[in-house]
Design a binder for these strands. Structure first.
Lengths: 246, 246
DNA sequence: ACCCGTCAACTGGTTGGACCAGTTGGCCGG
DNA sequence: CCGGCCAACTGGTCCAACCAGTTGACGGGT
């Protein structure tokens, strides 16, 4: 049992969180004007500067557009927000079921993971390949402890993606592993099948080490699909989230 | 000929840009302490609040870690930054050649595009499929004008990704198409081959419309690989960017 | 010589208020 | 009815003070 550090959210953090959730969950419609900074600061009973910091962060996330003189407008985050928003998408249950989001994240993980494994087998530097073998060993050494195996597994995949030499994949990996609803925090039972497949991990590592491009891609795809398929079967068609938008 | 809106960067935007470039380009080492807010505000000759807003944004991007009482420390962005950072990565030429970054973005585009096409053919709602056919028509209608074709092509891919119902793919698409070095702004000659392949676009649209899952995936992969291969051949091995890190 | 509490001198966090700068929309004169 | 003007918004910037944590050096006790 370990203790989490007590969260000391600053005032502007709280304002940010509230507004973010309000926007993502659709309580503010797209293109709607947010209350003025002065109004918000009165509502939240905080200084205007705190509100401003929050708004700047929301703008950076792609959730609002602030413009001097005019009102701060809410954007359609499906059109303007980047992948970093995934960290914040948990609080939009009514407009976007977590189950769907989880499925999406796992699909993306499988897609990128397989391609990264391919690229890694194709062009990773010798040192990077050695680091991967090493990471698999650490993963295997943690075998009874699921939590530690999960950590080691994440570290292994980071090595593989680093080995692929693709910065975009690496950043996407960061986006997906950060945040509450992250790949690493997927409920244990769902990842167990994948985590316990030590043989597949070993095989993947070997294929990368010896430059078996096609094999590495296939193994990675199979390994990562385990969870995705399980998740898909679990909630079948988790509801249509695709809607018509002009 | 159209005019771009004159950029009226606010003071804090400029501070943000300067610090971002300094960090990404490695002028501040990872784990190094940034100058204090008061110091920075004196250096840039701006108010401390402007510096604070910039720092909050940098923190959100995953470039720095600010902590009350302690110093604001620079993070290793390769480990902590999300995909949204791609928009800012142009100014790190010395530590990360644009050619490499461009290749990476194209690889990711191909990977996600193909999978989105697959998912779209598999589970898109009828309305979404119709919207795609429509988008292809608009794309084909723009035929002589490369710029307009590029726009229409982006719109088409957005429809396909929306049709896949995968929010993560959609957000990643946003991350990749935003920013200066975005997919949409890739130099014309490089995308020309792909853009001119109207037949393949039509085929893809048809396969999605009729639910040919494997076919759609294959067509999309081939279509998106055109550019990637061209780019890869152009600068061959654009230099190793993988380094050992503890 | 070493350990440990204390405290001063940092760090960022928050506040209030004043003023600048750009946008909007209504009002009034032509 | 049109068009310019102006007041009343909006966000942008600044100053100055103080609150709240962290850090490290200093000095007394062991």
């Amino acid at each position: 049992m370990t203790f989490e550090p007590i969260s000391r959210q600053s005032v502007s953090d709280q304002v940010f969180g509230r507004l973010r959730d309000a926007i993502v969950s659709g309580r503010y419609a797209a293109d709607e004007a947010l209350p003025s900074e002065r109004e918000l600061s009165a509502t939240f009973e905080v200084n205007r500067h705190a509100v401003r910091e929050a708004l700047r962060r929301l703008q950076q996330l792609g959730l609002v557009q602030v413009s001097q003189g005019g009102a701060t407008r809410v954007l359609d985050w499906r059109a303007t927000a980047g992948l970093d928003l995934t960290m914040a998408l948990a609080g939009a249950e009514d407009v976007l079921p977590v189950a769907t989001l989880e499925r999406d994240v796992l699909e993306m993980r499988a897609c990128i993971g397989a391609d990264a494994a391919r690229l890694c087998a194709e062009r990773a530097a010798p040192g990077a390949r050695a680091a991967i073998t090493e990471a698999v060993d650490r993963y295997a050494a943690a075998i009874p402890d699921l939590a530690r195996m999960g950590e080691a597994d994440l570290a292994l995949w980071r090595r593989i993606i680093e080995g692929s030499g693709n910065i975009a994949y690496l950043l996407a990996f960061n986006s997906l592993t950060a945040g509450a609803l992250a790949v690493g925090h997927v409920p244990a039972p769902r990842r167990t099948a994948e985590l316990l497949d030590v043989a597949a991990h070993r095989r993947l590592s070997d294929q990368i080490a010896r430059g078996d491009v096609a094999g590495a891609q296939r193994t990675a795809r199979e390994l990562l699909a385990l969870t995705a398929i399980g998740a898909a079967a679990a909630h079948d068609e988790a509801g249509e989230t695709t809607s018509e938008r002009g």
